[in-house]
């Protein structure tokens, strides 16, 4: 029970992670339909086997300067709604003991930091990310 799994991905060469419980699937980038007059971090909507999924550009949401193209979509579910996080690339999944090496913070969209095998991973707060301002 004490095991946590984190999906790790890249945003502009930095590693970020999100807990696997909320993740449904991972896809290659695909064409999306633009949402008129929406927030700037919404990349559009896609059809995923009959479900309409809203794409949230994580770099735009976290206000990170963009130089690289997003290549992957992480599909997650929040309150029965599906979202897709567009990220640069997937690094992998790491397993860790509960609260192992985690520094808790409470600053905006960041939940905390994890050190694993010498790599630093920024854990994001999915709930906040996916809640309208």
């Amino acid at each position: 029970m004490a095991i946590r799994q984190i999906v790790v991905f890249f945003l502009e060469n930095k590693r970020y992670g999100v807990e696997i419980e909320n993740i449904n699937d991972i896809y290659e980038k695909m064409d999306a339909v633009r949402v008129p007059n929406s927030d700037d971090f919404i990349d559009g909507i896609i059809n995923l086997r009959g479900d309409v999924v809203t794409l949230v550009n994580l770099k735009k949401r976290l206000r990170i300067d963009r130089s690289k193209q997003e290549e992957n979509i992480i599909i997650c579910e929040m309150n029965k709604d599906k979202f897709g996080l567009t990220v640069d690339a997937i690094d992998g999944i790491i397993r860790l003991e509960k609260n192992e090496n985690e520094t808790q913070t409470d600053s905006g969209f960041i939940k905390g930091f994890i050190e694993k095998n010498g790599k630093q991973i920024i854990i994001i707060d999915l709930k906040r990310i996916l809640t309208k301002n």
Partner: peptide
């Protein structure tokens, strides 16, 4: 979700 309330 995030699309609710978009005008038009």
């Amino acid at each position: 979700g995030m699309l609710s309330g978009i005008q038009g």
